[in-house]
């Protein structure tokens, strides 16, 4: 499986890192390059969705091998405030996101042109262009792929749930009793693995469509280069005098919704809460960090300038003292 890191390779990488040994045997950042050109985005036209849940079912079937298989009993957690997240007996819940349900149908009944109308639309990970879950993951388990997919590596994730906290939509969902934490300090660090939509990265690698897009009888979703998808979203929005969500949210995502109703209106009308993400406007979570990162270039220059200034001052003072002595 491409980009898959086994426990063995994780331990190998960890030992190499901690011991600062074997650097040459590790992959160098040859893959570091601009990701914009190759990013794929999905377009979700909510007018077309009939809420049949075919996408939900297909996602569950195609990704079943990736779903958690927790070992019970779970390790005893310390301190006691650490809660177990167990969805293994509720794996068929489909009305929200869970570790076993990576896409669900959200509904909102609103008034459009004087008529009450119910809209349904698939909700899952937005696959942000600069995903805070991947940026802030302390362990390298969550990462963004060059094709715009953000995925969590279940072989590495310790289930600390940081990705969920920093995600503006709180998308990732935790399952206790599975993953690497069981092999490290199961009672004191970690709490399972975080799961979310990986946009069927393995199917995309094979040149296939993600399951939810492939199965949809109404062709609600479409996938393509982000530029083209954004262009098409704008064309539809212009045609229907509609609205777009996901293009600018959180600095830009790779999931673009088009609706004939303002998203604020949908957001007010739909059920939100745990596992049921909102549709509010979202500021770029990583904007401050990006600006600070650019400003970091100045810091060493300031340090060098200060040292040179000090040396110049001392040399000048020494010269003056010598002249006074003469």
């Amino acid at each position: 499986m491409p980009n898959k890191i086994s426990r063995r390779s994780f331990i190998k990488g960890g030992l190499a890192a901690v011991g600062a040994l074997g650097v040459s045997s590790l992959p160098l950042p040859s893959t570091a390059k601009g990701a914009d050109q190759k990013e794929l985005a999905t377009l979700i036209d909510i007018r077309k969705c009939i809420g049949c849940e075919a996408c939900v079912e297909a996602c569950g079937e195609v990704n079943e091998s990736k779903f958690p298989k927790p070992q019970k009993p779970f390790p005893k957690m310390y301190p006691k405030r650490v809660k177990v997240s167990d969805w293994s007996d509720k794996r068929y819940v489909t009305d929200r996101l869970t570790p076993y349900n990576w896409v669900f149908i959200q509904e909102a009944t609103v008034t459009l042109d004087g008529k009450e109308e119910t809209f349904s639309f698939p909700r899952r990970c937005m696959h942000c262009q600069n995903p805070p879950c991947a940026d802030l993951c302390p362990w390298g388990a969550a990462r963004k792929l060059k094709n715009g997919i953000t995925r969590i590596d279940s072989d590495i994730c310790l289930g600390g749930s940081k990705c969920k906290k920093v995600c503006p939509w709180h998308i990732p969902q935790r399952q206790t009793g599975v993953g690497l934490y069981r092999d490290i300090l199961p009672s004191f660090a970690g709490n399972g693995v975080m799961f979310k939509c990986d946009r069927c990265y393995d199917k995309i690698d094979q040149g296939e469509l993600p399951a939810c897009i492939e199965i949809c009888p109404e062709k609600v979703q479409k996938i393509g280069p982000r530029d083209a998808i954004v262009k098409e979203a704008h064309a539809i929005a212009k045609k229907i005098n509609g609205y777009i969500y996901g293009e600018k949210e959180n600095g830009g995502t790779n999931t673009i919704y088009v609706s004939p109703v303002p998203f604020e209106k949908l957001n007010t009308a739909m059920e939100k809460g745990r596992g049921r993400p909102h549709l509010r406007p979202v500021q770029d979570s990583m904007a401050h960090a990006d600006n600070l990162a650019k400003a970091m270039v100045i810091a060493p220059l300031a340090g060098i300038a200060a040292a040179v200034g000090k040396a110049y001052k001392f040399t000048k003072n020494d010269k003056n003292s010598e002249e006074e002595r003469e």
Binding site: G13, A32, A35, N130, P138, K144
Partner: peptide, 28 residues
């Protein structure tokens, strides 16, 4: 520095290298 670079919007590293810089930063 590599960790900061990784967090920039247009930069992506290979999974192995990402893991390496994360763990080596902490380990060091």
């Amino acid at each position: 520095i590599f960790r900061v670079l990784k967090n920039l919007p247009d930069v992506s590293f290979s999974p192995g290298f990402t893991l390496f810089i994360d763990i080596s930063h902490l380990g060091l």
